[in-house]
Design a protein around this nucleic acid. Sequence first.
DNA 1: AAGTGGTCTAGACCACAGG
DNA 2: CTGTGGTCTAGACCACTTT
Lengths: 251, 251
Amino acid sequence: MTSTATDRLDFALDRTSPVPLYYQLARQLEAAIEQGALGPGSLLGNEIELAGRLGLSRPTVRQAIQSLVDKGLLVRRRGVGTQVVHSQVKRPMELTSLYDDLQAAGHSPGTRVLTVEKRPAPAEAAAALGIAEGTPVHYVERLRLAHGEPVAYLTNHVPEGLLGLDHERLEATGLYRLMRGAGITLHSARQSVGARGATPEEAARLAEPEGAALLTMRRTAYDDTGRAVEHGAHVYRASRYSFEFQLLVRN
Amino acid sequence: MTSTATDRLDFALDRTSPVPLYYQLARQLEAAIEQGALGPGSLLGNEIELAGRLGLSRPTVRQAIQSLVDKGLLVRRRGVGTQVVHSQVKRPMELTSLYDDLQAAGHSPGTRVLTVEKRPAPAEAAAALGIAEGTPVHYVERLRLAHGEPVAYLTNHVPEGLLGLDHERLEATGLYRLMRGAGITLHSARQSVGARGATPEEAARLAEPEGAALLTMRRTAYDDTGRAVEHGAHVYRASRYSFEFQLLVRN
DNA sequence: AAGTGGTCTAGACCACAGG
DNA sequence: CTGTGGTCTAGACCACTTT
């Protein structure tokens, strides 16, 4: 048996906890990787032995490892072993622009809610939400700020009856957090990112010169029943904002 | 036992095939969903019974189902069952801009290779690739066309010694396909998408007016050992191109 | 109470990489 | 040849949702 980096680590598994064992292990492995206890390229040691040492079955250990492989933190090689991915990646914006808007929306640097009201759905929003044009929907208009400067102008349409929206809650919490709180489980979203020059109105709102390049994003989000729960059309100041994200390739 | 949509389907599993059973099942379920044999919202029937009917163990059936859940085609609900995701999503650009450039690059609508040569790595590319500034690297400059019109101007830096690059192969196949063919397994990429006005040179190359809004993308791609294998800086005509992609939310 | 997915076990054999 | 992950089995009990 060759020496592996996990030999020196001890993992504390609590069988009385409601947290699944594979999840407890995954979290502890992840922490060890982040803290550098498991450096890039280090071998995890074979699954059978690891299972024996932890008092777990091999499938349980595999489930923990697999979840980290899916996250891109580990790489498996048949006949070789499981290694910590060779540096680089690690801690960059976990998913992509969904989360940068969503998560960040919770503890947001600053949001000014300009409009919250019910309106008849315009054609584009109605089509995206799968409802008839003119059906009443929530309409939200927000300005996102960073360091006191405007960064983005956000407009959203949300079907009626899904959740209560008011000015106060939107400034405090962000749209996606409100949805989660209302029992809506987000499942997927379709996005389209483009660019165009600023119209005079947009230029004024965002403190940019007319014609300045803006990033645009349209997004429709769906819950796990396939229902469209939100449609947004947003513009970002290209001079102050870009979408950063990491992709994992499925092989 | 309630009637489920899978009752009427028959799956053909070949135990002599080297293709894993869970994968055979997953492919056939996926095909049934795409062809509409399993419509949106239809129940798959419980895993135990399905396993029994197919002559498989439950974990194997679960593995097949899980792979489709990860793809966003199915949704599991404890106490309820497994359902086909309620329409909508289905067949939109499988991942995101990586693939739109990558896969599409194979059977690309048209690519004009402007430059292929070795150059000392400029500062940005060197930093991205983790090599010393001035180290010789491959440099590639391409114009992407659609319907005979320019759509994007692509520049790439590739470390030496990874693969052979020449004008001919690049026009025929695309960079990422060449890499795969050279035994490089792509693992992840970091991207940054922004926008800016066209410089005079860019305007001329892309047949846009000066100052027109352009989409910009910078990407560094890594293989499964964590090695940076490519860095690209690209500009797209915003009037003719946008990034479309779908996100899956991990809950 | 009944039915579902979620987790877990303790084995087995195979395919592939490396010395 | 040896060691590794990849696949597969046949059970078990639990947690949750619905009736």
